[in-house]
Design a protein around this nucleic acid. Structure first.
Lengths: 215, 215
DNA sequence: ATGTGTCAGTTGCAAATGCAACTTTTCTTA
DNA sequence: TAAGAAAAGTTGCATTTGCAACTGACACAT
C-alpha cells in the first residue's frame, strides 16, 4: 500500500495516522464497474488498475476523455467545469481507489501529521504528471487530420517505450473514441498507411516504419 | 509583486529570501515578443499579461496549444514530451515572467526558507488550475464537429462570466487556431448558426440564443 | 489622401471524414 | 468445442471540412 506515490517518504505509521486524518477510504471495483459513489470535494487516487473518464454526448458518441493509470487522480474538481452530456467513470480493469478529503489535504493540519508537507509535495508531483498527460492529449487532439492524430499518438507510445513496435493499450474501437474520430474512418486510414508502407499493423500491434523525425 | 499567487501567505521579507534561494529572475517582454531565453529545468510563472504556446507544423498550420494568463505556468517540463514541429512561446500582451529553478523548489531547502512548504502548497494550487484548464481544452477539442466545438467553447466562456453575451478573447483567426479548424470553415459555420438563430454575432462579440442546457 | 497590413467575411471546389451496413476474425464461456 | 459476443476490417455514399482565392472594412503610418 505504501508503494503508492502519494505516501512516498512517509513511514507506515505516519500513513495510518494521516489516512485517518484525511478520512481516507479505500474501495475496490471490478473490471467494467461504474464508479458513482464519490462525493464532490473528495479526490480519487488510483492505487491499482486503470479507470477511464467517458463522456456520452447527445448524439450517442462515446469519448474517452481521460485514461487514468496507477497513481493518477480524478475528482469532480477536475471535470466539473463545462462538461455536458453524461460523464461516467468506468473501470477498465479491476481497480482499487483511495478517496481522500481534498480540502483537508490542502489545509494546515492541526493533528499529528508532521509529514503533511511531504504529502503536499507528493501531491504536487502527481498533479504535475496529470498536467503533462493532458498536454500530450491536447497535442494529439490538436492535429488537424486523422493521419496526423494517429502518427502523433503512435509516436507518443513509441517514445514511452523506446520501441518502434508498439501495442495499443486500447481496443481499436476505444482508440477511435480516444482520438475522437470515427472507427471505420480510422481503420481506413490505418489501411492506407499500411499500403503506403508507413506502418505495419495487425489489430492492436503496430510497427512504425516511417521516419519519426519527420512527423 | 507579492500579489502573485505563488507567494500567497508569505511575507515580503521571506519572499526576498526565497527568490534568492530559487535563483528567481524576473524578465519583461513586450507584446508580440518571442520568449526563447528560458533554460530547461526552469519554470516560468506569468506575473502579468498573457503568453501563448504556439506550434507551427510542417504543413504551415498554426496551433495555439495553450493560452496562459496571470499566475499560469509554463516550462519545458510541460511540453517536452512529444511535441514535433516548431514550438514557440509568444507574448500576446506586454508580460512579466518570473523564472525559478523548479528542481530546487521541489527539494527540501536547507537555507532559511521556513515558508518553503507554503510555497509548495501554492504551487499545487497553480498546477491544479492548469490541469483544470487543460481538461476544459480537451473537452472542446474532443467535440466531433466544428459546430459543437464552437458551442462548447462559447458555453465555457459564458459560464466563466455568467453572461450570454460574450466577447471572444482572441481575434477570430486566432480562435480558429485555438479550435484547430480552418478559419473560413469556422466563419461559415458561425454564419449558418446565425441564420438558424442559434447565435447572434458580429466579429468577436457573440450572443448565445440557443438553449444552453441542450448542449 | 494614399499606401500597407491585418482582420472579417464569402464562396466554389476538392478532399477528408462520418455514417451505415455489412463480413470476417478473435476472444469467452457454457 | 460450439455458440455467441466482441472486436477488427471493408466499402459506398452523404456530409463536413479544408483549401484557395477572393472582397470589403478598418487602423495606422507617411
Amino acid at each position: 500500500m505504501s508503494d503508492t506515490r502519494i505516501f512516498d517518504n512517509i513511514t507506515d505509521e505516519e500513513v495510518d495516522q494521516m489516512k485517518n486524518c484525511f478520512k481516507a477510504v479505500n474501495r475496490k471495483y471490478i473490471e467494467g464497474e461504474r464508479i458513482s459513489s464519490f462525493e464532490s470535494g473528495s479526490l480519487g487516487i488510483v492505487i491499482t488498475g486503470v479507470v477511464e473518464i467517458i463522456r456520452f454526448d447527445f448524439d450517442g458518441n462515446r469519448t474517452i476523455l481521460e485514461c487514468i493509470n496507477e497513481n493518477g487522480i480524478f475528482g469532480e474538481l477536475f471535470f466539473s467545469q463545462i462538461e455536458e452530456g453524461d460523464i461516467q467513470i468506468i473501470c477498465a480493469t479491476d481497480v482499487e481507489i483511495m478517496y481522500i478529503d481534498y480540502d483537508h489535504l490542502l489545509k494546515q493540519c492541526h493533528n499529528a501529521c508532521s509529514h503533511h508537507s511531504t504529502l503536499i509535495r507528493n501531491m504536487l508531483s502527481i498533479v504535475s504528471e496529470k498536467s503533462i498527460k493532458l498536454s500530450n492529449r491536447v497535442e494529439v487532439l490538436s492535429q488537424r487530420t486523422l493521419r496526423k492524430k494517429l502518427i502523433t499518438y503512435f509516436n507518443m507510445i513509441s517514445k514511452e517505450t523506446g520501441r518502434k513496435s508498439i501495442v495499443i493499450p486500447f481496443s481499436l474501437s476505444n482508440l477511435s473514441d480516444y482520438l475522437c474520430v470515427d472507427r471505420s474512418a480510422m481503420l481506413r486510414e490505418m489501411k492506407k498507411m499500411r499500403e503506403e508502407g508507413l506502418i505495419d499493423s495487425h489489430a492492436k500491434k503496430v510497427t512504425i516504419l516511417y521516419d519519426q523525425t519527420m512527423y
